[in-house]
Amino acid sequence: MEFLKDLFLYPGFLFGFVLGGLLEGFKRKLKARMQLRKGPPVTQPFYDLSKLLLKNITKPYTISSFTYLLIPFVPTVGLLVGVLLMPYPFYQEKASFSFDLILIFYLTELPLLSQIIFGYFSKSPYGMVGAARAAQMFFYYNGVFIMVITTLCLLEGPPYSFCLKSIAEAWDSLDVLIKILTIPFFVFSVLAKLKLNPFSIPDAEAEILEGPLTEASGVALALFKLNYLLELAIFGSLFAFFYLPVLKTSPQMGLSLILLGAFFLFFMFALVENFTARLRLSQFSALYLKFLIPSATLILVITWVLKTW
């Protein structure tokens, strides 16, 4: 019973879904206000998602109904497990397992993999181009993301483990300095992970329609959108765990800090999205290969030297 409550209410499905939806709505509203528009209501993602649940499905002939619905459903389950693996206040005290960051990292890759598989399975030329672009981008931004989480894992001291709780509790003055240095790399890799501008290359609307999701409709599309909202909640919370003293304060304050951190991250995303235009794939790879991956590696090496010698 307790587990079902964790899975479906807090910090599971309901919390992740509502937080993700509000973050997306907040970002859209903020983007509109920055462009001197009124913008959609903050609850717009919920309307979009619930509308899709009642729509008919028009699927391509090349894919069976079972596969069509299974591909987006698997990452939904994965992301729910991912949400449960985060040390949220009021929940981390009673959880008996370690909050493994590596596992969260793998689980947050599932939606992208499912989109790539869906794009290729649908046999749509737009879907295949979108899937190919997403697959190419995967290696670059994950390189940076792995550097960031490895750097943060070095903060907790030996024995090194990728436990999110220990990273969230590392708050010496040196730790804070290193954490601040990794913020731009975290923001850039998450921007690319969430396919936001300037890295909205896989689902570039004007060029390749909706990218890998071109052939998705009805419940399948709703599941893809739900996955996206859960991803937003996970990355918003990760930002708060990494860069705010969430677990150093009372649980009520910790929860408020998580919400504050998540909304601040999406404020930054709205700002970056409004300032930048979409990059080409070659520009994206050049930015990561020439600048972001070497700089993230340098910070990792410096942290390792400072922490071990």
Partner: peptide, 21 residues
């Protein structure tokens, strides 16, 4: 555009007819 802003009513242009209402 900013002047008429159809997005305030939840209206969005989509690229695929399979997403459209």
């Amino acid at each position: 555009s900013s002047k008429y802003d159809a997005e305030r009513f939840g209206i969005k242009l989509v690229g695929s007819p399979k997403h459209a209402d």
